[in-house]
């Protein structure tokens, strides 16, 4: 019965996505909500966001991700709570662990939902397919259902200040469960927020003409509006930007409130990665570029002329 929510933590505290999922889980009204926390963290805030109980597997083995230990811990948590549904934020942990868990316990897996609702006592998700060109409803018909949820799908309410009882254990896992071992963590290439979580993005395309062009136009404009720089595949393939900067169907799917596209034509594969952005600004010298069909605000003009002007205006507005 009820919902188990895998809560992400960062630096020993729950992440925003944990509060987002707990609030939604509570609102679904499908039974008690248990927050599951893996590794050492301060779990005292979780009750205020919707957790009826907290299961804290405070075990150093779970502090660094390993498939073997985390999948086992999740299976143990499901058995301990008898949860009918398990929610997790759609990040690398869920991407790696949920399908394996699904095969282990025979649980249906609904992938990267952007909406959840309860229907006749069952959990129904809605998820993008074909890179967001279509949406489907998705439901599991197994005893346990696993649902991963894209970050920023639901608003986060204020804490009620409630506290929830905490059960602490080692989760039944030990160092022997670590299969693939992390030997080193490599920091992201840029110091900005990762594209998939960024609230503002400034992207550049092939039209930047060179890495110097990209570095001297896109990056400073992004910095001026506190945004993460992104790129079209054409810009990445030409070496102007890193692989990790690519937005689109074969790059990152992003969901910012502001997306500024500089000299990007708006190919269907690029649009697939950014079409859900709340506000899209396009600067392109071709008035017929497909990106304008999606742009909230369009500027027909030369990006090399507009980018410095915009940079100055943003610096003024945001200082």
């Amino acid at each position: 019965m009820g919902i188990l929510v895998l809560c992400d933590t960062d630096g020993g505290a729950p992440r925003k996505s944990a509060y987002e999922l707990l609030g939604k889980a509570k609102a679904l009204g499908l039974g008690p909500v248990t927050a599951l926390v893996l590794g050492s963290a301060d779990v005292s805030s979780l009750g205020g966001y919707g957790a009826d109980a907290v299961l804290h597997y405070d075990n150093a083995v779970l502090g660094t991700y390993s498939t073997g230990a985390v999948v086992k811990a999740l299976a143990n948590a499901i058995a301990a709570t008898g949860a009918q549904y398990v929610l997790a934020s759609a990040n690398q942990v869920a991407r790696d662990a949920f399908p394996r868990l699904s095969a282990r316990i025979g649980a249906g897996y609904a992938v990267e939902c952007t909406d959840l609702r309860s229907e006749g006592g069952k959990l129904v998700g809605r998820r993008p397919v074909y890179a967001g060109k279509a949406l489907v409803d998705v439901a599991t018909n197994s005893a346990v259902g696993l649902y991963s949820v894209r970050p920023n799908s639901f608003p986060i309410g204020a804490s009620t200040g409630a506290s929830a009882p905490v059960t602490v254990s080692d989760g039944g896992v030990s160092a022997a469960d670590v299969d693939v071992k992390v030997v080193q963590t490599l920091a992201p290439e840029g110091k900005e927020v990762d594209l998939t979580e960024a609230d503002r993005i400034v992207s550049g395309g092939r039209s930047l003409k060179s890495k110097e062009g990209f570095d001297s136009v896109v990056r400073p404009l992004a910095a001026a509006v506190h945004a993460t720089p992104g790129a079209s595949r054409a810009a990445v393939d030409a070496g102007y930007a890193h692989h990790g900067d690519q937005v689109g169907q074969t790059g990152k799917v992003v969901n910012p409130s502001l997306y500024i596209a500089l000299g990007i034509s708006g190919a269907i594969q690029h649009l697939a990665g950014m079409r859900t952005s709340r506000v899209i600004v396009a600067v392109n010298k071709d008035a017929d570029a497909p990106i304008f069909q999606y742009a909230t605000y369009g500027i027909v003009g030369d990006l090399f002329e507009y980018a410095p002007l915009l940079q100055k205006e943003f610096e003024k507005a945001l200082s």
Binding site: A107, R275, T296
Partner: peptide, 17 residues
């Protein structure tokens, strides 16, 4: 174990300016 139904297109974006 999973059923996908009711495929739809995402809502169109309002016209820009």
């Amino acid at each position: 174990l999973v059923a996908e139904t009711a495929m739809s297109l995402p809502p169109a974006r309002p016209a820009g300016r």
